[in-house]
Every structure is written in structure tokens, then in C-alpha cells.
Design a binder for these strands. Structure first.
Lengths: 140, 140
DNA sequence: CAAAGGTACTATGCAATGCAAGGTACTTTA
DNA sequence: TAAAGTACCTTGCATTGCATAGTACCTTTG
């Protein structure tokens, strides 16, 4: 997949985790969540956030209350339910383990490159590998 | 989503990234990739890995060659194409930025909890929030 | 030599989430 | 009163990881 698509795919599961974190700090409405995601360089828009909030509400992880605004329509302020807090605890572990796993693989590659280059950190292109024609069975 | 599903969702995009890293170190076949994923605590099975390898091959990121085995059927040894190497470079940045984003959000929450608890690091349960009845419009 | 076991690989439909695009509704301003 | 700003909603689609069932080759055993 191309880089943009890779970014989309890598956000799956992550966005919910981030949202639960943001809401866990106290009641907050959608626009504030978007601001914080943007400042953390996770670029999402309302069309992504509202369906996610609805899904989390329906799954029992969130509750909300309407609050009148002094400058526009009323707003939904969200907070975590106890289910949501429990879910967030679990996802903390999930994220930590996944992140450790990925970083251990990445650092093995970096060490491998360092070893090949005699401890220099300059990356040199690997020699192009020859592709032999398929043998036992045809192209899949 | 529950924790197991969260793990599945969080792997989207990540698995390809890990596979590209593993293959970037030199030609390798599927069973070795599975071993390394397992040792990094990313538990996948053949039914997940082979379709991914096929997809990456079809996308031009990988090549393979058949190699006779001394103890079973022939094996496909995979290596990255130049496209695959370029893709991996891009995904390094994608992963790094996403990881930094998530960790910044997570650490903001931790600081918030520490502030609430008067700089102790012991987590205490947040008081359950009251949910008011819906007001301007019905339940979504 | 045939059957069984081990190993390697293939194919495919499904579940689930993030996304894009179009939309409604309330409040404020001109 | 209409336009602009703000807040929220809906829905179909793209994509990947997964589970399951399957094929095929090689080695070992009977």
C-alpha cells in the first residue's frame, strides 16, 4: 500500500485509543478532541470523529451530556463510562506491547544495517537481488 | 471494540511494516518470518502471512526465488525490490510519527493523572460521571 | 510401493475501522 | 430575513488482518 494508505491503515485501532485517552482526562467535546489530535499531528476531520464517537457510545464506553453554548448550537460533552475506563486500561497494555514489538523489529534491522556497514550509520543500497523464474508452480 | 479486536485493528498496517523490515535484512522464507514475529510477540499464523506476502509481491514490493530444501518441499525466499525499499523508508517515517503522536497523547494523560493525584504516580479511580438525559435531539 | 506425517504454500470470504462526502440543525451576524 | 458560523449526523466504500479449508511436495514408515 502507498504511504497515505499505510497511514490510514496504521490508524485503525489507534484512533479509538487516542480518543479514549483524551476523554479520560475529563469531559470534552468533539472540537477540542480534534484540536488535540491535530496538535499531536494526527490529522482527522469531523467526518471521521463523529462516527467513532457514536460507535463508542453505542458500545457503552462513553456517555455524553448536552451543554448550552454561548456561541453557537449546544454541544455534546463526552466522558468515559466505567466500561470505557476498563477498556482504556487494556488498550494501554495492547499499545505498549505492540509498540515494543515493532520497535524491537525496527532496531534489529538498524543493527543489521550497522553490522553490514562496519558500524557506520550510512545506509548503502543493498545489491539488487536476482529473481529466478518460478519453478514448481506457476505465478500466484 | 474488545481487547482482542483492538489488537487485530492495531495490527493493520503494522504487519506489512514489520514484514518489510524483516525481509530488508536479506532473503528469508515464511517460516523464519513467523519465528521472528513470534519472538517479537506478534502472534500471526501462516494463514495471515501468506496472503500478505502475495499481496506485497503483487504490489511490486517483493520478489522471491524458489530454493530446494533438504528437508521438505522447496521454499520461497523473499527479498525487497527497490520499490519495496522505498516503501519501507516511507513507512519508517509513518511509524515514527504515529508512535510519537500516540505517546504524546498518552503522556499528557499520565501527567493529567499525576496532577490530579498531587504528583503521586498511584492511579486512583476517577469518580464516575453523571449522565444527564438527552436534550435537544434524541439518542443517536 | 502405498500410506501417513511433516512442511510449504494457496485461496477466499468475512469482520471491522477509518474515511470521504453529503447532509441537517441551531445560533449569531449583517 | 438571509447568510455565515458552529455542531453534529449518516452512509457507502476501501482496505487489511483473520480464519478456514484446501493443495502439493518430500520424507518416513509399514
Amino acid at each position: 500500500m502507498n504511504i497515505e494508505n499505510a497511514q490510514v491503515q496504521m490508524r485503525k485501532g489507534i484512533l479509538e485509543f487516542c480518543i479514549l485517552h483524551i476523554i479520560s482526562r475529563g469531559e470534552v467535546y468533539a472540537s477540542d478532541m480534534l484540536e488535540e489530535l491535530t496538535s499531536a499531528r494526527i490529522m482527522v476531520v469531523e467526518g471521521t470523529l463523529y462516527p467513532l464517537l457514536t460507535r463508542l457510545k453505542n458500545a457503552g464506553l462513553l456517555d455524553y451530556k448536552w451543554v448550552e453554548s454561548t456561541s453557537g448550537p449546544p454541544r455534546k460533552y463526552y466522558l468515559l463510562t466505567e466500561t470505557g475506563q476498563a477498556s482504556l486500561k487494556g488498550m494501554n497494555d495492547t499499545w505498549q506491547e505492540l509498540s515494543d514489538s515493532v520497535n524491537s523489529i525496527v532496531s534489529k534491522t538498524d543493527k543489521h544495517k550497522a553490522a553490514i556497514n562496519g558500524l557506520t550509520t550510512v545506509e548503502s543500497p543493498a545489491p539488487a537481488a536476482e529473481t529466478s523464474p518460478d519453478t514448481p508452480s506457476g505465478e500466484n
